[in-house]
Amino acid sequence: MRLFWSYGLFISILCIIGFYCILVTYNLIRALVGLEILIKAATLLIIVAGYITGHEALAQSLVITLIVIEAVVITVAVGIVLGIRSHNNSLDARKIRNLKG
């Protein structure tokens, strides 16, 4: 379990970096990078969980599936960002504020 907490420290630092990245940046692509960092933290957590409990094979198959799905999600997200860019000619989040209320 001590092993878990030392990995856990690193994972929580990754999480904080990811959230900070999403919250602070105005650039849409950087926000997606932040999301990627967050997903990487979760991936690492699953690997550690498999390693501690001795279910490495299960954790591996979960992680491979996860990587595939995450790639699909981020691809669609980049597609949406491209759509925004073709309308606004910029990647600045401050320029997309039509929806509120």
């Binding site: 997903i39 979760a42 957590l45 969980a49 279910h55 299960l58 979960l62 996860l66």
Partner: peptide, 9 residues
Amino acid sequence: LSSIALLLI
């Protein structure tokens, strides 16, 4: 996913 990992532990 984090919750899934914790439940896995």
